[in-house]
């Protein structure tokens, strides 16, 4: 059960043009920085990226957009990125916007063997176009299908070579559900620990969902909105 790989380059080995990827993170918080750099280096293209956001112009998925490696984005919120907007309005980039809760649940369902589910989110809006509507207890719900990915790229705080991982703070966000929904799930960690170094009671994602894990390096952890209050 040794899932340890050397680095990001080895982690993303096998990602080819046209594949579907999931990338964890919320804004720039908890994004797989090392895997994104490695993807930029390979020049792989025509990717479909499932990620809550699309990074900013010069960081995160924004780096892949700059090199036009992304054919389609599946996200809930894509502000804060001029290059993204330019490619979307010019038609170079396909964009599927999904309510955030539905996006999370579609990933979870994809990893949990549930092909589809009914949700109230988006009923009566353009998100519901073409989707089955059903009433339960008099309330309308729309049918949403599960999402899966050829590769899920996940950022965790600590992990062991069995693939057990834990997250820190709100860097958790979409990472756990995406870890579950990847055919190949690649995890980069800030700190690789020896098996037994993590308390089994506090594992966030068990290693069964993970295929590759590596020690990440050089995390920038950029802050999008640095908000503070003065010391009293």
């Amino acid at each position: 059960m040794n899932k340890l790989v050397k680095d990001a380059k080895e982690g993303i080995e096998g990602i080819k043009d046209g594949m579907t990827l999931m990338l964890g993170g919320f804004g720039l918080c908890g994004i797989p920085e090392n895997c994104i750099s490695a993807l930029v280096d390979t020049g792989v293209k025509d990717l479909t990226c499932i990620s809550n956001n699309a990074g900013v112009d010069d960081f995160g998925i924004g780096l892949m957009l700059q090199r036009t490696q992304v054919k389609k984005m599946i996200s809930s919120y894509v502000g804060e990125n001029d290059e993204f907007e330019r490619q979307m309005l010019s038609g170079d980039l396909e964009v599927d916007l999904i309510p955030q809760g539905s996006l999370a649940e579609r990933c979870r369902a994809g990893g949990a063997g549930i092909p589809a589910f009914f949700t109230p989110a988006g009923y009566g809006t353009e998100v519901a176009n073409g989707k089955e509507v059903r009433y339960f207890d008099g309330k309308p719900y729309i049918l949403e299908s599960a999402l899966q990915a050829d590769y899920a790229l996940v950022k965790a705080w600590k992990g062991d070579r069995y693939g057990n991982i834990i997250f820190k703070g709100t860097a958790r966000n979409f990472n756990p559900v995406m870890a579950m929904a990847g055919k190949i799930t690649v995890v980069e960690v800030e700190e690789l620990v020896e098996p037994g170094g993590l308390d089994p009671n506090f594992i966030h994602i068990p290693g069964v969902f993970v295929q590759r894990i590596f020690q990440g390096t050089g995390y920038e952890k950029r802050i999008e909105q640095r908000t503070t209050r003065p010391k009293a």
Partner: peptide
């Protein structure tokens, strides 16, 4: 947070740096 105590791993949905109250909890998007 107070100036100098910002944590890149602790933000709100507006991507602003925040703090946690005692008794707070963290969970995934689902």
């Amino acid at each position: 947070p107070f100036e100098g105590e910002e944590d890149a791993d602790l933000i709100n949905a507006g991507k602003q740096t925040v703090t946690m109250m005692k008794g707070g909890s963290i969970f995934d998007s689902s």
